[in-house]
Write a protein that binds this DNA or RNA. Sequence first.
DNA 1: AGGCCCATGTAATCTGTTACATGATTCC
DNA 2: GGAATCATGTAACAGATTACATGGGCCT
Lengths: 192, 192
Amino acid sequence: MALRHAVLAALLDEERSGYQLAKAFDVGVANFWHALPQQLYAELTKLEREGLVAGREVVQETRPNKRVFQATEAGLAELREFTAAASKPSFIRDDLLVKVQGADHVDSGQLIEQLGERATAAEAKIELFSALLHQMRGDESEDEFLLDGERIGPYLTCLRGLAFERDNRDWCRRIADVLRARQAAALSHRPG
Amino acid sequence: MALRHAVLAALLDEERSGYQLAKAFDVGVANFWHALPQQLYAELTKLEREGLVAGREVVQETRPNKRVFQATEAGLAELREFTAAASKPSFIRDDLLVKVQGADHVDSGQLIEQLGERATAAEAKIELFSALLHQMRGDESEDEFLLDGERIGPYLTCLRGLAFERDNRDWCRRIADVLRARQAAALSHRPG
DNA sequence: AGGCCCATGTAATCTGTTACATGATTCC
DNA sequence: GGAATCATGTAACAGATTACATGGGCCT
C-alpha cells in the first residue's frame, strides 16, 4: 500500500486522467515518486472500485475520450490516515551513482559522458520546476505566497524537487571535472 | 537486473559479509540504493553461483561464523558492461513528500512533527557522512585527495549523499516553519 | 509515409516486502 | 533478566517491469 497515496495526493486539487497522471509520474511528480502508466491505470481502477476516487467520462472530438478522476471524501480520509502514520524512510535508486561508486575500476570516458547527460537533464528539470513555481505563486513573493496561498502543497514539494535537481546538476559537473582532471594527470605521468 | 550491480560495486574494494552489506544498504549506501537483508543474502547466493563474486568462510570464536564476498574478474566485467549501458533515470520514493503534497487538506501538527523527526535523522546522516569523508581523505584537502587518491568512488557517492541530506534537513526545517507560520496566522484571524 | 502524441489497458515475469525461523554473545 | 548485535536464511505475498495490443489524429 504505497502508490495509492501518491495517486490520491495528486488527485486532491484537480481532476486528471490516467494519461495525465502518467506524464506527471514520469517526470517524477516533482521528484518524489515514480510509476509507470500500467501501474497508474491499474491503481485508478482499484481506487475507483473502493470509492476513494470518482471518475467521469470526458467526451472529446478530435482525441479519444478519456476518464478523469478526483479524490473523494473517503479518499481524503484514507490520505489523512496515511499522514497520521509513521513515514517509511525515503528511498533512492540511481544507476549512475552505482557506476560512480565503481569509478576507480571502470572507463572514465563513459562516466564523464553520462554525467554530462545527467547534468543536462537536471538543468531541464530546474527550468521546468522554476517555471511551475513561478506560475503557482503568480505576482507574489515566495514568502508571501507561502503565508497566504490556498494550495501550497504542490509548491512545497516542487521546491524540494528543485533543490534536488540543482544538487544533481552541480554534483554531476563537479564529478565530471574531477574525472577529467585525473585523466589529464594520468596522461602527464605516463605520456603517450 | 539492478540490485546485482549495486552489490558488485560495493564488493569491489573490500570483502564484506551479507550482514555487513545489509547494514550499508540499510543506511542507503550513501543514499543511492536501498535493500533488505533477505534480498542481499539471496543476491549474494545468485552472484556466487554465477561466479561474479567469490565467497570465503571466516571462522570466528565469539561470534557466529560468516561468509565474506568480493567481486571477481567476471563480476568486474559485468559491472563494466552495466556502466557502458544507458542509465535508467534515478528514482525516488518518499512518503513524507506525498504527505506534504496534501498539506492543504491534512492536519499540520502531524506534518510539522514528522518534518522535525526527518530533519533530525538528516542531521545524523550529515554527521555520519562528514565523518566518513574525513576518514577517507585523511590529512589531505578534498581537492588533493580527489586528484591523487586511489579509491575515490566511495568518496564521490558519499559527497552526493551529504548534499542530499543537507537539502533534506534544510527543506524540512523551512517547510515546518512555513506550516507553523500559517497556523499562527490562522489563529490570529479567528482567535479564541 | 513515418513518427509522435493522445488514450487505455492485459498478461507474464521479475523484484521486493512481510512474516517466520534460529541461536549465541555482549551490553545495560 | 531483557535488549541489542551478530549471522543467515525460507516461504508467501505484494508490487513493479516488460512485452504485447489497439487505434485515431497531427505534424513534417
